[in-house]
Amino acid sequence: MTLSDDAIDRLRRCLDGIEIPGGRYDVRERLGSGAMGTVWRATDRELGRDVAVKVLNDAFDMDRARTQLEREAKTLAGLEHPSIPPVHDVGRLADGRVFYVMKCVEGTTLAQWVRANPAPAERLRAFLKACDAVAFANERGVVHRDLKPSNLMLGRFGEVLVMDWGIATAPDLGERESSGRPRDDGGGGAGTPGYRAPEQRSGGPISPRVDVYALGGVLAFLDRGVDPVEGAALEISDRRLRAIVTRARSEDPTRRYASVAELAADVRRLLDREPVHAYREWPWERVARVVARNQFFVWLIVGYLVLRVCMFAFSSSR
């Protein structure tokens, strides 16, 4: 049997594609793949809109992966926030794999966005939007556990969306985990190197400070455009920003910000040129910051003084 190029392309497509029973969703293209699942763009025929369908990859341990995806869908469904993509539907493919349907986010990841070299203040504002969503989830007992630039997306209207809640702790697991017992769902050691807190690496107790640690890594990435390395010195030129990142990424969880909201507050102070809690500034630094913050008045005073000197010089010369 000799296959034509067209036949090979068709076979590749049909091997790669998924079929969702019921005929409501018309699967169109693969958007991306991760360790656990693949995201497809599909059209919801009933509502006439594009959606994203996340489906489990073939995994060695299907039961565990299925549980994780179902939990991710439930976790997301319980978090109604503008920066968390809403889940529309959950189901199973004909082969038993779980899928869920969510909002199709058009945009770029923070990792891609930073390559376009946005202004530092713009980066911090995007970071604050991500913090708002994570703080919202943390308050409801959900810890993301895998925050990194490629899981944060910038939408078409400048909104920031926190994606991939696949290994997040669900509220009903929070109490069990805070007791210090290791997780039994594959969560121990989960996360991404460089963004994974020490207690996560060792399978220790999970708390919102895990997300604080990861967001510290995101902040370092936003400054340098390079993923942070575990245990390596931070190469951040701005001392205040470096102090914030250092505190967020303390090895000892108790020395970190107690919550993402606290971290966000310090970043907001940095953005507004107010004293940040993580950094004790020298008197001249304080002066420089005050000057930078009140540039208009400083220039007004300088102008006034120059004018007075000129007037004095003019009157003396007469």
């Binding site: 091997l15 793949s33 994606m163």
Partner: peptide, 11 residues
């Protein structure tokens, strides 16, 4: 490469 998933994996 065969599955077409060798492009940048972001999600």
């Amino acid at each position: 490469a065969l599955e077409g998933s060798d492009r940048e994996i972001e999600r």
